[in-house]
């Protein structure tokens, strides 16, 4: 959490893309990799990676979650930091793996792995101390910090610090910005009425912010809020923070 101590800038890092990004937002994953490469890092993407296991874990299916988690633990063996473009998956890998593997032959490896996990904006700010130059046009933007990013990873300021470096971006405040958007993984399917009510309220707050773009660090929330906005015929573009930062700061020419 906030008291975490950070290592020196490494030469190589692993990238854990997350299954949502892999299937629905691969551009966000590519952008995350490019942000890291631009800082001179050697980025490794193990092709055997799949999912952190959170969907089954949060649903109470721990054996199934562990089987999937084991696949990740085994394919990130070297002592490099593991960078994750999602607060939610980062928290699963970092905070839940040790308990999930308690008493398991892979416990040592899982604990070692979990200690090397960093959420992307956390790593950009605290380890790489990136400096960004905004090349994009003026734009009104609002930020949705996911619950896991804020409350499980303790990352509230990091994404804002990055967005604040973009001179042409007008970061609009979001009412009730700390309140959950109602995604909650399988919650959105199991308790759809409450989830829809929460997403609807959040979408309304996003609209009222006057932003043209909704930026978040978690694709689950983006899918939920943007899907609701879109179903209502509203035009607010969803962007993962990695993609947003990369789009605005790399020289396209």
């Amino acid at each position: 959490m906030s008291e975490r101590s950070y290592p020196e800038r490494p030469e190589s890092v692993y990238f854990f893309g997350t299954c949502l990004i892999d299937l629905f937002y691969p551009g966000a994953g590519m952008a995350g990799i490019e942000l890291l490469q631009r800082e001179g890092l050697n980025v490794i993407f193990p092709q055997a990676q799949s999912c952190c296991g959170q969907p089954a874990y949060n649903s109470g299916y721990r054996d199934e979650a562990r089987a999937v988690a084991r696949n990740q633990v085994r394919h990130f063996p070297k002592p490099y930091p593991v960078i994750v473009p999602s607060g939610s998956c980062a928290s699963m890998l970092r905070n839940r793996y040790p308990g999930l593997f308690e008493g398991d032959p892979d416990e040592g490896a899982a604990v070692g792995f979990s200690k090397r996990v960093y959420e992307l904006t956390e790593f950009l700010v605290h380890v790489l101390k990136v400096e960004l130059t905004d090349l994009g046009p003026p734009m009104k933007v609002t930020w949705h910090g996911s619950c896991s990013m804020q409350r499980e990873m303790g990352l509230r300021e990091e994404p804002r610090q990055l967005l604040a470096q973009l001179g042409n971006v007008d970061l609009r405040p979001l009412e009730r910005e700390r309140e959950c958007c109602g995604f909650g993984g399988t919650f959105s399917i199991k308790l759809p009425e409450i989830s829809a009510a929460m997403a609807g309220d959040k979408a309304g707050d996003v609209e009222r912010s006057g932003a043209e773009v909704l930026v978040s660090g978690d694709c689950g929330c983006l899918m939920n809020i943007a899907g609701t906005l879109e179903a209502r015929g509203r035009r607010v573009a969803p962007r993962h923070i990695a993609e947003f930062l990369w789009e605005r700061t790399h020289d396209k020419g």
Binding site: G17, F24, P26, G29, P192, A199
Partner: peptide, 12 residues
């Protein structure tokens, strides 16, 4: 209450 998520043409 939401649009259907769209799979990307290619995975990461």
């Amino acid at each position: 209450t939401r649009t259907k998520p769209r799979f990307a043409a290619r995975t990461l």
